[in-house]
Amino acid sequence: MKAGSFEWHPARSADEAVALLAQYAPQDGRVIAGGQSLVPSMALRLAFPSHLIDINGVDEFAKVRVEGGELVIGACVRHAAFHVTVEPGPLGRLLVQVVHDIAHYPIRQRGTFCGSLANADPASEWCLVAAVLGAKMVARSARGTRVIPAADWFQGIMTTALAEDELLAEVRLPLLPAGTRAGFYEFSRRAGDYALAMALVSWRDDGDAMRDVRIGAGAVEAQPRRIAEAEALLEGHPFTPAAIEAAAAAASAAVDPLEDVHTSAEYRRDLVGTAVRRAFAQAGS
């Protein structure tokens, strides 16, 4: 199918983009970056914005940089930027591991990191990364700039704290300290499909004990989240197969899984345990 009619407004700067958004958001205007979710939604007539504010020409949005212990990812940084390490530490390596599970190669050339966060699909890999690592979302509008922590960002299926006149200008991910181990695993029935479940884990080995343990699940509930019950079983304890098994079981028990025609809640719950176990097995140093 073909998209409905809209007026196209290419922006050349962030200031121009937020000014256009302030003008057109009340008239059903939306921001387009990579468009790899928005354009199919328009083709299927699930979305029919009257105005598109195109930020692909905003150079300042195309940059990824390290600043003050954070990786700062601009609004138009493509998924493909993470095919190589964007920073030399454990975070850069984790992002390389995660990016290969996002859609397909041509989609990754166009789709953006921030677009995934703004779209907030429950099965988004970057949303799980943001939730588990505690990303900060920087929202800009003609009214000013505000920083929204991951804990407040996700508000249900494809719903975020972003106001209609705000655009997600950048996402800030905290760098992982040297020595952090992190792993990711997702399951889907065909390459490139939406995941049925995914898990992201990270921790530091402090002598015999695991520290700063983070365990999160995505594509399972309405939004990705950390699972405190599973983390508590490992924090301060040695890394053993039995401990990992117990944490995987706790994660599985703690989730309230979504159901769809292909996947029952019971199956998805079981997958969470498997995904957590495999994420630990995949963890690099």
Binding site: A3, W8, P10, G35, Q36, V39, P40, A43, D54, N56, A80, Y105, P106, I107, Q109, R110
Partner: peptide, 12 residues
């Protein structure tokens, strides 16, 4: 680089 030409508008 390869892209899906159905997921872009010509004006872009």
């Amino acid at each position: 680089v390869p892209v899906r030409s159905c997921l872009m508008f010509a004006v872009q």
